[in-house]
């Protein structure tokens, strides 16, 4: 990630496609991430219903609580596009508010996840308990790790905005974080459907 703060010293480069290097990089990275989460989801599905002991998804997953946390993450994506929209219009103060909201909602989602993990452990489901535990905690844990990285990235952007580095021209830096953040959101859309709704119902 070549973060080039727009200090005016960085030469504007012409590129073959007219697209920025960094944006091309992040999309290639997200394509790669599809395979990462795809493999984790494949493992979970292959082992669906193969656990030799309980508790399984039907006994332990709490759809109402997770629906709320899913909603929180969706809302954070809205805040993120608002932040991006603000920075491209040069409204740094509005940007700070929106990006902070995004980070707070992301942290809230992580809080839900911590609560959920702890609750499951108390109910007797750990990564060692059965196949469901191993696959569930690994998949959602890595998603949570991605959210954590995202929150740190957002807070860093919030911090940069006070250095005077983040101006209308550097909307790209926000754009990259936003793409990452939305990607983490759509991964959760899949996880919520596959692990929670389908996992419990079928």
């Amino acid at each position: 990630m070549e973060h080039a703060p727009a200090t005016g010293h960085v030469a504007i480069e012409e590129t073959t496609t007219g697209l920025s290097h960094r944006k091309l990089l992040i999309w290639a990275f997200l394509a790669s991430e599809c395979m990462f989460f795809g493999s984790l989801i494949a493992t979970l599905l292959v082992y669906h219903g193969k656990s030799l002991s309980g508790p399984g998804p039907k006994e332990i997953l709490d759809i109402p609580v997770t629906s709320v946390s899913t909603f929180v993450l969706l809302l954070s994506s809205l805040m993120m596009v608002m932040a991006y929209s603000a920075i491209t219009r040069g409204r740094v103060k509005a940007f700070r508010i929106w990006i902070m909201c995004t980070a707070i909602l992301g942290a809230t989602f992580l809080g839900f996840q911590a609560f959920e993990f702890r609750h499951f452990a108390l109910e007797g489901l750990t990564p060692r308990t059965n196949l469901f535990g191993s696959t569930f905690f690994t998949l959602t844990g890595f998603h949570g790790a991605h959210v954590t990285v995202g929150v740190i990235w957002l807070l860093s952007l919030f911090g940069y905005s006070f250095r005077g580095d983040l101006t209308r021209e550097s909307g790209l830096s926000v754009d990259l974080a936003a793409l990452y953040w939305h990607f983490v959101d759509i991964v959760w859309i899949v996880i919520f459907t596959v692990v929670y709704l389908i996992g419990v119902a079928l």
Binding site: A28, F29, A31, S32, E33, M35, F36, G38, S39, L40, T43, P127, R128, N130, L131, G133, S134, T135, F137, T138, F142
Partner: peptide, 25 residues
């Protein structure tokens, strides 16, 4: 490379968790 290495990474993570944390993959 960018499409194949994530798959081995997941396999390695699962193996590592099996060995270090006692998961059941």
């Amino acid at each position: 490379m960018i499409l194949a290495f994530p798959v081995i990474t997941v396999a390695l993570i699962e193996l590592m968790f099996d060995r270090m944390f006692g998961t059941n993959f």
